[in-house]
Write a protein that binds this DNA or RNA. Sequence first.
DNA 1: GCCGTTTTCGGCCCGACTGTTTTCAGTCG
Length: 575
Amino acid sequence: MAVHNSEIAAIFDEVAELLELEGANAFRVRAYQNAALTLGAMPKSLAEMLVRGEDLSELPGIGKDLAGKIAEIVRSGKLATLEELRARTPPHIRELLRIPGLGPKRVRILRDDLGVKSVADLKAVAERGLIRKHKGFGERSERKILAEVRRLKGAEIRVKWAVAEEIARTLVAHLMALKGIETVEIAGSFRRKKETVGDLDVLVTCASKVPCMDHCVAFDEVAEVLGRGPTKCTLRLRSGLQVDIRVVPAKSLGAALHYFTGSKAHNIAIRKMGLERELKINEYGVFKGRRRVAGATEAEVYARVGLPYIEPELREDNGEIQAAQQHRLPKLLTLDQIRGDLHCHTTESDGKNTLKEMAEAAQARGYEYLAICDHSKRVAMAHGLDAKRLAEQIEQIDHLNAKARGFTLLKSCEVDILDNGSLDLPNDILKELDLTVCSIHYKLNLPLEQQTERILRAMDNPFFCILGHPTGRLINQRHASEIDIERIMRAAADRACFLEVNAQPDRLDLSDIHCKLAKELGVKLVISTDAHRASDLDFMRFGVNQARRGWIENENVVNTRDLVDLRRLLSRACR
DNA sequence: GCCGTTTTCGGCCCGACTGTTTTCAGTCG
């Protein structure tokens, strides 16, 4: 079976960590880390590139050695270097690096001097008070380690973007309530709209002598103050989310925003460009010698290295800098370009609002159309529709449409893709619909080949329009199904079918990487909320965020079209 | 381990905070 890019990336990550624990050259470690980042973000399958005889050493950060190691992994599923490292290292020692405050050096000290080989060992020596006696550690370190070990159990590390947004909103409101605080910006992966967020990086500008830090730690959701200095504090909120707040001078806000928005890889690349121009770029500004030459806005920072402004969602050092240099940055999709939603449910299946209520909610959001996609009968738990009930719903929709002005309900159904790739309703009834969303809800963990064939077979049905939540993953809960996404996308392009970006905050399926791949392969996307209640229609912004991270533009998305164009696109799909 | 107005080896992003020690190493982002 073909090795996934993510598996190769995971192997390189592990090599990097084990090398780090052995005290290897830090730049060698970084080479593996960089390679893992590059490979993990690549939409194209490395295994297939090798089959086609492409030269992997042309990839950024991949030289002759790592190209050879990738080939070894693809060929054998293993890497000898890693096996050797593992043989020399206690199996659970990597877990120790997950504990905040412990890096490779201190882990080595603990292992060599106290025989700590796992988190359990660590807990034991900490409880016996052995760590505090050690050079370089003290009582506070020991207490902190113990607290972290206890917290580690069952802790969910990264929260979904939508959850972080809620928290961010209340935090910003709290901070802005203090007189003298001028601006509050959330940077970090939150600003880049990553699907999950590890912590919130907050930047504040304020008038001098404002008791800003006092105000920060007084936020009523703070569970613990992890650190506090004159310009920075680190908090853990009751939700478990960590927050870093920094006060920066207004003249440095742009530089700080750039610095703390990241990604790390993007920043390193930009700073390197600065160095080539003899500029030092840090969170305080852009400096020529000791003279500050920019820093108040991000656009200034970019301008100093000869680049146009780059949207935060693109900042992954994944081609955006080259695109900016060549003036071919994408004009990213915006929420107001979406003209309608092509996937929602009603009380007829498992939705909470009626057909009429959903229609009104869509109109209230300024949409031109809304597709009603209740489940088909296979999804019995959701009271899925059979042909007869669907026919009745079609009649109701015709009735409502006859009275509506400037708004159209589209007749659709979320048709289950059955085990053998056939659709859950007969074509006799599907042909009466404006479109179909075809999805898998059962047997999500078939082997790759079988799952892929199942979808391709479904796609052969002339009434297949849109593949709903294509991988079936649930963030932090369920892995993506094993499918050959590239093959499915090529097939969709051939058949004028579309793939959904499901905007449910726990789905966000397709991923950003898949969105980018779809664009490259010329497959059009549909961004839909899969709303089960009227208020869920507001999930659209999460789907747009995801698409933006995937470089998606207006023209790549089907539901940015007006109804006439939409029907034209669909008629080609639903012959 | 990668990279190079590249040719054989030196450089590879940078500052705040912490806990320890008393001038700094380690960690983090």
